[in-house]
Simulated assay, not measured.
Amino acid sequence: MKKILIVDDDESIQLLYQEEFKDEGYQVAAALNGEDALELFRQSPPDLVILDIQMPGLNGIEVLRQMKMINPAVPVVISSAYNEYKQDLGAWASDEYVVKSSDISELKMTVRRLLG
């Protein structure tokens, strides 16, 4: 069973993603901030990460950089409410960039494609 790590400081988004991806047959872990995400990433490496950008403490771009240094093979999908971050050079290290929406079908399709 493929494991997804969801990193988002919005608990309602986190719960939505957890439920949706568990229903799709994935094992799901979650973190509310970048520091906890990096610890989970090191201790129990996921097969894919869904990462928010705007978070307290370490922002998503910094978390992305550190994750790619630890294990560049793990795909990271940035899921942000802000489309303008697509232009941020730091976001280019992600494997995909999906703008948050109440309809998460694009995110689900992206995850399925990246996990094969």
Rank of each mutant, 00 (worst) to 15 (best):
L115M: 13
N71Y: 05
S105D: 11
D9W: 12
K2G: 04
L107D: 06
Q14S: 13
G34Y: 09
D103H: 09
G90N: 06
S44Q: 13
G57T: 10
L107I: 09
D88L: 11
V111P: 06
A81L: 14
V63H: 07
V76N: 03
L89G: 11
S80H: 06
K22F: 02
V99C: 10
F41S: 01
P56K: 05
G57E: 11
L107F: 07
N71G: 01
V98P: 04
P46Y: 07
P56N: 04
A31H: 02
I61D: 01
A93F: 13
E20K: 13
A31M: 03
E11G: 10
F21R: 03
K100E: 09
Q14E: 02
V63D: 00
I4V: 14
V28K: 05
S79P: 03
Y97W: 08
N33C: 03
L51Q: 10
G57P: 04
D95C: 06
F41C: 00
L40I: 12
W92R: 14
I4T: 06
P56D: 08
Q66G: 08
S102D: 02
A91T: 14
N59V: 05
L89N: 05
L51E: 05
V76I: 11
A37N: 03
K2S: 14
Q87Y: 06
I104S: 02
F41L: 02
D9P: 03
M1R: 07
E106F: 05
Q18R: 15
I4K: 05
G34M: 09
Q14T: 11
R113N: 13
N33S: 00
K100Y: 07
E39R: 11
E11N: 13
S102C: 00
S80Q: 04
Q14W: 01
T110G: 14
A37Y: 06
D95E: 13
Q18T: 15
N33P: 01
R65L: 10
D9L: 07
P72K: 11
N59E: 09
S105E: 09
P46W: 09
K22S: 08
D10H: 15
P72I: 00
S101I: 07
L15M: 07
A31G: 05
D10G: 08
S105H: 05
S80L: 05
L64P: 09
D103S: 13
L48E: 06
Q18P: 03
S105W: 03
N71W: 04
L89H: 10
V28F: 10
L89F: 08
I50K: 02
V74T: 12
G60D: 12
Y82A: 12
N83M: 10
A73P: 00
I61W: 01
L64Y: 12
T110C: 15
M109K: 13
L114E: 02
S94A: 15
K100V: 12
L51W: 13
W92C: 07
T110P: 14
K68A: 11
L64S: 11
G25F: 10
Y97D: 02
L64R: 12
Q27P: 01
I104N: 07
G116T: 00
R112S: 13
G34F: 07
G116H: 06
V28N: 06
P45F: 06
N33D: 15
L40P: 00
D23Y: 07
